[in-house]
Design a protein around this nucleic acid. Structure first.
Lengths: 199, 199
DNA sequence: ACCTGAACACCGTTCAAGT
DNA sequence: ACCTGAACACCGTTCAAGT
């Protein structure tokens, strides 16, 4: 049994999140339990509740890390796309492959509706950050549009990409394979942009 | 305690689903438990397992009923729209208000990923049925397109509408209110259609 | 034949008591 | 100060036994 001062609060937090991610990877959200996390890191459940408000809070932290990973992939250096439209398509593709490759991790971001009234700011910032990436390319593509129009277009497009992804993963789309998802997304974005930039 | 032959299998099933829906309406998926459903209908848990394979199966049946309700709203007689584009926008609006008004019920359709390898046919049919509605109007709008093109466009659009909805409801969109969701959807559909019908 | 009741192996969360 | 251990009030699922 671990004794006090074996690890700092931060160390325990980190260990717990890593253990939780491993369980989620293996068996999804239903494979996760506070007791199992505690056991995996060599502490009792009680200790976990000194660090996280509850299991929901722990999951929220896992989700924040998932958003971090995705953001990293979205901002990683890639062969420079020929134009902003291709940059957007590439962003979408990154999103789709992330959802595909890390589907267990990714699903939970939307499966888990925190009981809290108000999603904490440190979490919301991670969401906003992703939209900013999309807005950047949209602005370059349609310089005559207002900030509000760009903001809305980013949300429409990104919502669209996300919707196709999640319907595919939950089996509610009636298609199979990453390629189909890719095709649908390409179609969605390029047709949308044709309309968006023409007025 | 209920005794045998008090109710038929079908009656018990119906009672259980109604009780489950009530719990979901009040406290979401986490407010649902097999034991509570059993108690609510005056039978023991054991009986529930004679009728449903497990709790997942029960939830799948609840979801099928949710899809039925939505489908009914989507096919209900409305003031006839002036054209197919407006018909599509109206379908989307129906979807959005359903997601808004019955959000607890609706969320679960996508929260719940059945452990089964293969989603049963009776469930998939209810999903396909909705896409058929969208395809109908798309076909009228773009008669020169092939069946495959129509099918994909329907999935792209509907995925898009869905994505905006679910991001809004899970607080991952950074906007609030049904109106914003409506606006984003209108923008998504009309811009997409402009591109789709022009080639 | 239909249903129960009790068992099994788990949960999340709290908190007095130990070191 | 930090952590434990045991308690409380729950779970899903199974299945021998009762009527």
């Amino acid at each position: 049994m671990a004794r006090r001062s074996d690890h700092s609060r931060e160390e325990i937090k980190e260990m717990a999140l890593i253990a939780a991610e491993k369980m989620i990877l293996e068996k999804g959200l239903s494979g996760l339990s506070a007791r199992k996390v505690a056991q995996a890191i060599g502490y009792t459940v009680g200790t976990l509740y000194l660090i996280f408000k509850n299991l929901d809070d722990l999951i929220l932290h896992v989700n924040a890390r998932t958003l971090d990973r995705l953001y990293q992939k979205m901002t990683a250096d890639k062969p420079l796309p020929s134009d902003s439209q291709n940059a957007l398509l590439q962003l979408a593709q990154t999103y789709i492959s992330f959802a595909d490759e890390e589907s267990q991790r990714w699903k939970i971001v939307f499966e888990h509706h925190s009981e809290e009234e108000h999603t904490p700011n440190w979490y919301m910032e991670r969401v906003t950050r992703m939209f900013t990436q999309v807005e950047k390319h949209l602005q370059a593509l349609a310089p005559h549009k207002s900030a509000v129009e760009i903001k809305n277009a980013a949300r429409a497009i990104w919502g669209g990409v996300h919707g196709i992804c999640i319907l595919a993963i939950t089996g509610n789309l009636g298609v199979a394979g990453v390629e189909s998802v890719d095709d649908l997304t390409q179609s969605l974005i390029s047709n949308y942009l044709k309309g968006f930039t023409s007025n």
